[in-house]
């Protein structure tokens, strides 16, 4: 069975010092699924996302991304950390879009988009330039390739960041509160690009506070609180008719 674009987690645990941030979290995401994770701050949603591309390592539990154990290989007695090269290879298949964009300020928009293919995959430079131009055009920034991040608005930077992760041809893209650092009037342009991407069948996991986006675009929704998945299911169903009291209380506050 082809497991590209799937995420499967069972009983993931993660602690920072004495604080347990993820408490036996289960997660099942199918290929092409758009999943939004919502919840109050400190609920562990960003940490969960960061585990999926290795920015954090889980303490215990099973984490399979694209059908493979992520960051580790399993033996009879333990999980052993993968050597850096193999971990890097797994990471190239999972794109990450950050709240604060994290474009490389020393590179132009085009160089940012080309960074992955050229520096990591050693792709042909001409081909990559062409691909970068296409990707920048697809996020509405075809004419901005020569600009440095400092010369772009937040919304534009975030769209370049999306193009940068797309350039790696990932199977999955993770979005960590992609619009939270934006001016209100710039949020729409970024969500539009994400909606576009959703239509193309990319697996997307989105930590967000944008309930409108969750309702219109997401297939499934996860509500997390205090390191637990409190409720999960169809996005529209949960947003209109939450079953758990904690979900009801949270949604009452944000809607």
């Amino acid at each position: 069975m082809n497991a590209d674009g799937t995420i499967n987690a069972q009983k993931i645990r993660k602690s920072f010092g004495p604080k347990t941030v993820l408490k036996d979290v289960d997660l099942d995401i199918a290929s092409g699924e758009i999943c939004c994770i919502i919840g109050p701050s400190g609920s562990g949603k960003s940490t969960l996302l960061r585990c999926i591309n290795g920015l954090e390592t889980v303490d215990s539990g099973i984490l399979k991304v694209n059908g493979e154990d992520f960051g580790y290989y399993e033996t009879d007695t333990a999980y052993h950390a993968l050597p850096p090269k193999k971990l890097a290879l797994q990471r190239t298949r999972v794109g990450m879009v950050f709240q604060s964009f994290n474009l490389f300020p020393n590179m132009t928009a085009r160089e940012n988009v080309m960074a992955g293919p050229v520096l990591v995959k050693h792709a042909d430079k001409k081909q990559s330039t062409k691909q970068a131009q296409e990707l920048l055009t697809s996020v509405g920034l075809g004419a901005f390739g020569d600009r440095y991040p400092a010369e772009l608005s937040g919304g534009q930077q975030q769209r370049v960041a999306i193009a940068r992760s797309l350039a790696m041809n990932p199977d999955i893209i993770l979005f960590d509160e992609p619009t939270s650092a934006l001016d209100p009037e710039k949020v729409g342009e970024v969500l539009a690009v994400m909606q576009d991407l959703a239509k193309k069948g990319m697996t997307m996991v989105v930590v967000t506070h944008e309930m409108g986006f969750a309702r219109e675009v997401a297939d499934s929704l996860i509500f997390m609180d205090d390191g637990n998945v409190v409720e999960r299911g169809d996005a529209r169903e949960i947003l209109t008719n939450p079953k758990e009291p904690r979900t009801q209380a949270f949604l009452k506050q944000v809607l």
């Binding site: 591309n53 290795g54 920015l55 850096p84 090269k85 890097a88 290879l89 797994q90 990471r91 190239t92 999972v94 794109g95 990450m96 950050f98 604060s100 994290n102 474009l103 490389f104 960074a115 992955g116 520096l119 990591v120 940068r164 992760s165 790696m168």
Partner: peptide, 13 residues
């Protein structure tokens, strides 16, 4: 964040 961005692209050390 810069280091995380580079990591998430799979850049080597």
């Amino acid at each position: 964040g810069q280091i995380e961005a580079a990591d998430s692209l799979g850049m080597s050390g």
